[in-house]
């Protein structure tokens, strides 16, 4: 039995003549994390804006917690927390005032709003700054307050739009830790990111979005498998052995790099393959200096799927 917290069917959106989303289908099982991975301009933010009822889709349907985002936006809003790309907090108010205000707007009682604000301040290490105006906060502190604000009502479903973009390493780790805790507590998380390592670390499933289409979906391992297998890299000691080494591994899908005296071979199966390969090299009298097992990264995945790097700097300027 599946229990999907988020269901997206053939979602489409144009801005004027530009097709931003060209038919997206996705499901997110309750209690899991889905990372929507893609370069700037791929349509990640548009997707989040539609799912959080900020934007109307042109076509297709989306259900959050069973509620239609177009027909029943208020029920959707009561089920979600949203952290957008900007630290959406009131700079003139203090951290505590911001959180208490958000609690009240999520329709918590006054007492609950106060208690929750206190808890969130402690959880996000903002207690010391609680009574200071937010405009005096650092970027990382603002972001933490921003995430805290979306968690104040403990919503079952969370949207995080590039939650760690522009964060210092410490704040980034804090946000990762919180995401982990949220999942442990049973929340469903839909996050977007441009960082492959972030998707790899946080997400149960990853959907790769490029030019308004989902071009791949699966677990990090499944995506990596698409690109290729693990590769065994062998560095030979003497240059004169290089050709002998190449002959020895002939037949296996091999790549060579004479400059580095390195031969790499795609691995089909398990450990016995490694042993067999080493035996073949030994029989050929090749001395080995180094041995490394190289697992494909999500960078490889992205390059393989889209033909371009994950970060396209020339696209960074967004409308």
């Amino acid at each position: 039995m599946t229990d999907d917290a988020i269901v997206i069917e053939d979602l489409r959106k144009n801005f004027k003549d530009v097709k931003v989303l060209e038919g997206i289908d996705l499901k997110v099982e309750r209690g899991t994390v889905l990372a929507l991975l893609g370069p700037n301009g791929a349509g990640k933010t548009t997707t989040i804006r539609i799912l959080s009822t900020l934007l109307q889709p042109d076509d297709g349907r989306a259900y959050i917690n069973g509620h239609d985002v177009v027909k029943d936006p208020d029920a959707v809003r009561a089920s979600i927390g949203l952290t957008g790309q900007y630290a959406a907090v009131d700079e003139l108010l203090t951290g505590r005032e911001n959180l208490e205000m958000m609690g009240r707007l999520y329709h918590l009682s006054k007492a609950d709003s106060r208690t929750r604000a206190e808890e969130m301040l402690a959880e996000f290490e903002l207690t010391d700054a609680a009574n200071r105006a937010v405009k005096t906060y650092s970027g990382g502190m603002k972001r933490r307050l921003d995430v805290a604000a979306s968690l104040i009502a403990a919503p079952p479903i969370l949207f995080l739009d590039e939650p760690t973009t522009g964060l210092d390493p410490r704040s980034r780790l804090k946000v990762w830790d919180i995401v982990q805790q949220l999942v442990d507590a049973g929340a469903t998380i839909f996050l977007t990111t441009q960082y492959l390592d972030e998707a790899d670390k946080l997400a149960d499933r990853i959907a790769v979005l490029d030019h308004g289409r989902i071009i791949a979906e699966g677990t990090a391992d499944e995506l990596k498998e698409k690109v290729g297998k693990d590769r065994l890299e062998v560095t030979v000691t003497k240059e004169s052995d290089f050709d002998a080494a190449l002959r020895a591994v002939e037949g296996a899908a091999a790549q060579s790099d004479p400059e580095e005296r390195r031969v790499s071979v795609a691995m089909e199966g398990g450990v016995h393959e490694v042993k067999e390969l080493l035996d073949r090299l030994e029989r050929a009298g090749v001395k080995i200096e180094g041995l490394a097992l190289h697992k494909p990264t999500l960078d490889d995945v992205f390059l393989h799927l889209t033909g371009h790097e994950a970060m396209e700097n020339d696209q960074v300027t967004k409308k």
Binding site: R49, S52, T53, L54, R77, Q85, Y86, A87, H107, S150
Partner: peptide, 13 residues
């Protein structure tokens, strides 16, 4: 500009 309106719009108010 600060994105606060987005956040307010995502609330059931």
């Amino acid at each position: 500009q600060k994105g606060l309106i987005d956040r307010i719009k995502s609330l059931p108010i």
